[in-house]
Amino acid sequence: SGYEIPARLRTLHNLVIQYAAQGRYEVAVPLCKQALEDLERTSGRGHPDVATMLNILALVYRDQNKYKEAAHLLNDALSIRESTLGRDHPAVAATLNNLAVLYGKRGKYKEAEPLCQRALEIREKVLGNDHPDVAKQLNNLALLCQNQGKYEAVERYYRRALAIYEGQLGPDNPNVARTKNNLASCYLKQGKYAEAETLYKEILTQAHVQEFGSVDDNHKPIWMHAEEREEMSKTQHREGGTPYVEYGGWYKACKVSSPTVNTTLRNLGALYRRQGKLEAAETLEECALRSR
């Protein structure tokens, strides 16, 4: 775009961030407002620096949960950016996205959706259909649709995001597991338990493969252990309890690797419980507790 944030605005931004982090909004806000006034006077209301300053102040308002005020500022910043950078600029997409986030925070999902949609179109146009930033945008769009109960759209968006992450970043990228987890949540909301279960198992198998390189008789993902333990409890009379199954250190591995895996353990555990597979559920829940 050719636009660069002037050094003094950068400095001011850092200062504002520090004040905001300390909760000193009574200092941060007037500082921003004064700078905004100065910029408007010296550079004119439509200058890109004014848009940047509006963004900085919007962040402070956002941190104070003043979403309405923040959105007002971002709308002004949006008009400036559209007229100075063009309607299809990444900065316009980013501003649209953040506006959508602010609307979303206020539960205005219906208003947020078209903004998010436009941000998506810009990113597709500028970055191509398979860029990870497109997947990020799809993720936000899916979430907005989920809040409106538009599950068909949610599935479509998450599936696309998943394909992008898998294709561009590889199966081990944390975004893959995260998106699968989100998609599974969407399935659960619709009562599609089998589909959710498949995804949870995929996540756990992938986490296992990442740690041990393969799945074989000696290296099984945790859900296979859980189901075996379930089977054993059904076929054998438990006297003095089943000996504790050693998970091959798997839980240690998932401990550091990701909170998503932990969530997945608990979610699949809940699904097992729903099916009355209590031993299997306990196995996963225990693993989740250990790895927390």
Binding site: L85, A94, L188, R266, N267
Partner: peptide
């Protein structure tokens, strides 16, 4: 029948708005 432990999903803010 406990509800599944779904993590609260959050809309993601784009921090790049300040780098243009």
């Amino acid at each position: 029948d406990r509800p599944p432990a779904n993590k609260q999903q959050q809309l993601e803010w784009d921090d790049s708005t300040l780098s243009y």
